[in-house]
């Protein structure tokens, strides 16, 4: 049902009630996507202004959180359009069963900062999907709608994003060498 045209005040109250609870999650996601808190603040503010401007198109009872994230993704895309083609719709994405090789355990005691650093190091097209799926817990279908890519692409990029993240964590773990190097294939760490 489309929101009835009532007074600006009541629409504002409805908007604030529906949209503002997602401020922290939007900021966290923006911050992790662009790696800069100042830029993230701007993007989140722009997201709210754009959402308010389009609020007449928002249908009460539908997923406001997903709607806000979709706007944020577009703002980030707009911001980075000159630098990353992470919205490019590749058709060659494959879900390769290449994870039966030895997977080294992630060391215990990884700090939050190390995790954020590892996240920042993975390619943007994978990072955004890891954030939306693993942190914000959106369904594949919702993510596909936000990014305007097929569900299959979401699946393959999530799989590869998680793998990238794991590789980054292994790389930053002190004293650990990636197991793909033959000389260290027997090295292991206990959990």
């Amino acid at each position: 049902m489309t929101i009835p045209m009532s007074s600006t005040e009541s629409r504002r109250a409805e908007f604030e009630s529906a949209a503002l609870p997602h401020l922290d999650d939007l900021f966290r996601t923006a911050s992790a996507m662009v790696g800069n808190r100042t830029v993230a603040e701007d993007l989140v503010q722009e997201t709210y202004l754009e959402a308010w401007k389009s609020f007449h198109r928002f249908e009460t009872g539908t997923n406001c959180r997903a709607w806000m994230f979709k706007i944020l993704i577009h703002r980030v895309h707009h911001y980075r359009r000159k630098w990353y083609q992470w919205f490019s719709k590749t058709t060659s994405d494959e879900l390769l069963v290449d994870n039966l090789t030895y997977e080294a355990p992630i060391p215990e005691g990884i700090e939050d900062e190390e995790l954020l650093k590892a996240l920042e190091a993975i390619p943007e097209m994978f990072r955004v999907i890891v954030l939306l799926a693993d942190v914000q817990e959106f369904a594949y279908k919702e993510i596909a709608s936000m990014l305007e890519i097929p569900v299959g692409t979401v699946m393959s990029r999530l799989s590869r994003g998680r793998k990238h993240l794991r590789e980054q964590l292994l790389a930053i773990a002190p004293g650990f060498t990636h197991p793909s190097l033959p000389a260290h294939r027997t090295e292991s760490r206990s959990l």
Partner: peptide
């Protein structure tokens, strides 16, 4: 880790 980041 991501949850530890708070909006200003």
């Amino acid at each position: 880790a991501v949850g530890s980041v708070a909006a200003p």
